[in-house]
Design a protein around this nucleic acid. Structure first.
Length: 801
DNA sequence: TAATTCGCTAGACCGA
DNA sequence: TCGGTCTAGCGAA
């Protein structure tokens, strides 16, 4: 009997229903592996009511799985709930996980199968109430599990992380393991870091020079073993580093046992990407995690390269200036200094990767624990598969059958037309003082909870008279909590509890605080994804009416608050979805108003005060001097902190000089209110631009190509710049193009060249298309015209204010 | 690629 | 050369 963290589970399909568990002892941190053959794969069958002899008939089902016979082993009768009613269902037990979907499909003639598409590992975790990354109490004999039970602890497993990165020979456009060797492998752990290479001399001590590439690969495995790595961290190792090394190892016949078993790393398609796994260790690819966090707005990256991510997350700039495409030149005939620099560059990448992973690992562990996914999956999954196990746990606890995945025809039959979205009140452009911003806390989740929205509560039989009725007339049950509402309530409850604890903590730097922060973040991610899923036709708990009702209630609540604000003599400046911008006289009036509103709201809903802002700017929509732009404003709070939304300066597809100038203008106006100072600043920028002395790096425009370059109907500047670069034989990555508008050519597309090819810039373009439009948007609210900025005319004062 | 929808904007394209 | 229309990318919620 011992207590251990459950790090990972996998199973070899060839061996049938035998699971392999990777565990880490709580007392001494030793990792060991056990097998569990006690779990039997199964599914449920709700028999057709008119058929009396279903059991016998089902037992006679025979089908084939990979050429061998597959039939049910036995049948048990169990009680389950379906649509709120308790019924007797058949639990059809099979001998191999692969048989389950086949036998379930055959059984359709006798009834309706349930829970036949649940992956075996998930089935095992759900039935034994086990949580990956959590503590378990396990009893075993030899390497066979006798019993295993959850302990449910807040303790996180202390994982030993080893990050690595490789450099490959790349004379051709892209390295191909069939042709190009791996030149270097660098690695980093909390205690040591180094570089492995071969056949060349290096000055630095951290470089270990092996006899050849094969020896380098084998030495790398040794290092992984010596460090007892639980987690192997990479940046895009899923699709590059691991498949590359594995292929090289096969070709060189190297002993490349990177894992804790004898198998080579495996690569298989997971959704749209490849995922590479290493036996007995967790391969943690930071790239999809960073991409996900960037997507949900945890931070904002212009580019998603390793060094950009490291800078954003750790604040440390580990950038080594090296052109990736020059690596083969440095290797073939670089000077000693260049070779040393290559090693330095490589080790930097491993160190950066380690730093990133150490930073995001707590969040990923928490996410895995919370949702019940293995961390290997939780770090790679999109919202739906991430959330599903979490709701399944709830279903199981309630004794309900889990709805099946919708079939292809069900999916295509579901309404995909857009649901009417949020309410937006357009602001009148201008500068305002004394703005209070209020917003609904977790608006959509709280509406779902307080109105019991859900697929299983919609149009119930029990409360035809007294259900929750949405503005458009959709009715939801008042007696039985929907599974979605139930789940969301759990999520919000634990999030608020964590936030409460965090407020009592003194140090925001402590490990404990960081862990709590990660937990509440993962809860937020989950809560926010549920509303979107209810409208996803592939979701098991899809409810079109639920989605429609949720946004309709949201619109109703916010307009109600607007009405009450006007009654209380506030001016409503702007609304978007869940926020209300009020103009006030006294702060205490706003606080009192908020309290009154909260008294009138359903228990779960709450209006929060975001902040008071002494001054703020809304700008006009282009070509419409009266209507203000949505999602575009700037505010300054009492501490002088500026909050900016939607302006060009937050967009990466604008040049740095335009963004910087716009930011300065906003800052001067919001902080000091001095229009003439802002005008002077712009004039200086204009003069500098016209002198031709602005560094090209400040003029770069970054745009992503979301399609293959050949698939574009319109040749935009970025596509044009990309094509010219390719024609010139330059190696530029397809995904993100950085270009400068030069003086060469007529149209903007013709003038656009990638940064590496640009020799000068078109001052007129940057003046008329970047600087002036971005600052005039703001300054024209204050009576400034284009002429004021480009010629020396009269000074402006703040008279208007 | 990610959840989903909407709005904003730039620049190309196209016909007069 | 113009103005309208269309394609496309980005950000906010």
């Amino acid at each position: 009997m011992s207590k251990a963290f459950l790090l990972h589970i996998d199973y070899a399909a060839t061996k049938g229903a035998v699971l392999r568990l990777v565990l880490k002892r709580q007392d001494n941190g030793k990792v060991f592996r056990l097998f569990d053959n006690s779990a039997k794969p199964y599914f449920y069958l709700v028999p057709n009511s008119d058929d009396e002899n279903v059991e016998a008939k089902v037992l006679k089902i025979k089908t084939f799985y990979q050429g061998t016979e597959a039939k049910p082993v036995s049948i048990e009768k169990v009680k389950k709930k379906l649509n709120g009613k308790e019924i007797i269902v058949l639990k059809v037990i099979c001998s191999h996980p692969g048989h389950v979907p086949l036998i379930a499909s055959e059984s359709k003639q006798f009834g309706q199968p349930f829970e036949h598409q649940i992956p075996f590992i998930l089935r095992y975790l759900l039935d034994r109430k086990l949580t990956p990354m959590d503590l378990v109490e396990v009893k075993y004999n030899g390497n066979l599990v006798e019993s295993i039970a959850p302990v449910n602890s807040v303790e996180l497993p202390p994982l030993r992380v080893l990050a690595f990165d490789i450099e490959t020979y790349n004379k051709n456009v892209k390295s191909d393991p069939k042709r190009d060797p791996c030149l270097m492998i660098s690695y980093a752990t909390a205690k040591r870091s180094g570089v492995l290479t071969y056949g060349k001399k290096f000055t630095e001590k951290y470089v270990e020079v092996l006899a050849n590439e094969k020896k380098m690969l084998e030495r790398f495995c040794e290092i992984v073993r010596e460090n007892h790595a639980d987690v192997i961290a990479t940046y895009n190792g899923d699709e590059f580093d691991l498949p590359f090394l594995t292929e090289r190892a096969k070709m060189l016949k190297a002993d490349f046992r990177l894992g804790r078993d004898k198998a080579l790393p495996k690569s298989r398609k997971k959704g749209i990407r490849f995922a590479s796994s290493i036996g007995g260790r967790i391969h943690f690819d930071a790239y999809p995690v960073i991409a996900f966090l960037n997507f949900i707005g945890a931070f904002k990256l212009e580019r998603m390269r390793l060094q950009d991510a490291a800078l954003a997350i750790t604040g440390k700039n580990l950038k080594a200036d090296i052109e990736k495409k020059d690596i083969h030149k440095m290797w073939d005939h670089g000077t000693q200094k260049e070779l040393d620099y290559l090693a330095h560059y490589s080790i930097n990448d491993s160190i950066a990767c380690l730093a990133i992973v150490q930073n995001v690992l707590p969040l990923q562990i928490e996410l895995a624990k919370l949702t019940g996914n293995l961390m290997f999956d939780s770090s790679r999954l999109s919202a739906m598969p991430l959330v599903e196990p979490f709701i399944m746990k709830k279903s199981l606890a309630r004794g309900e059958l889990i709805p099946s995945k919708p079939s292809y025809s069900e999916v295509s039959g579901r309404d995909q037309a857009p649901v009417e979205g949020a309410f937006v009140k357009i602001p009148d452009p201008g500068v305002y003082e004394k703005i209070a911003v209020l917003d609904f806390k977790s608006l959509y989740p709280s509406i779902i909870i307080s109105h019991n929205v859900g697929s299983d509560s919609y149009n119930c039989q029990c409360c035809t008279q007294e259900g929750f009725v949405s503005p458009q007339g959709h009715r939801f049950c008042k007696k039985h909590k929907s599974i979605i509402a139930d789940t969301l309530e759990d999520i919000l409850d634990s999030r608020f509890a964590i936030q409460k604890t965090m407020k009592t903590m003194a140090s925001k730097e402590s490990e404990e605080y960081k862990q709590l922060y990660a937990r509440q973040w993962s809860l937020k991610i989950l809560a926010n994804s549920v509303y979107g899923l209810t409208l996803n036709p592939r979701f098991r708990w899809y409810t079109r009416q639920g989605g429609e009702a949720t946004t309709a209630w949201a619109r109703q609540f916010i307009q109600e608050v607007n009405k009450k604000s006007e009654e209380a003599k506030f001016t409503v400046l702007y609304n978007d979805t869940d926020s209300i911008f009020l103009q006030y006289e006294h702060e205490k009036d706003v606080l009192k108003f908020r309290e009154k509103i909260n008294e009138s709201l359903p228990a779960r809903m709450e209006l929060e005060l975001e902040d008071f802002y002494p001054r703020g700017i809304f700008v006009a929509k282009k070509g419409d001097s009266k209507g203000g732009a949505r999602k575009k404003y700037a505010l300054i709070n009492r501490e002088g902190k500026i909050k900016i939304r939607g302006f060009e300066l937050v967009r990466r597809d604008w040049s740095r000089i335009a963004r910087r100038t716009q930011r300065s203008v906003l800052e001067i106006l919001l902080k000091e209110g001095k229009v003439d100072e802002a005008v002077t600043l712009v004039r200086n920028v204009v003069a500098e631009l016209q002198s031709g002395k602005v560094p090209l790096d400040d003029l770069v425009i970054v745009t992503q190509l979301r399609k293959k370059p050949s698939e574009y109907e319109i040749k935009s500047p970025e596509v044009s710049a990309y094509e010219k670069a390719i024609k010139a034989g330059l190696q530029v990555p397809e995904a993100v193009v950085s270009y400068v508008v030069t003086s060469k050519g007529k149209t903007i597309s013709e003038k656009a060249y990638v940064r590496e090819m640009a020799k000068d810039y078109d001052a007129n373009y940057y003046l008329n298309h970047q600087i002036l439009p971005s600052v005039l948007k703001i300054l024209s609210e204050l009576g400034i015209t284009e002429d004021d900025l480009t010629t020396n005319s009269k000074q402006h004062t703040l008279g208007k204010w």
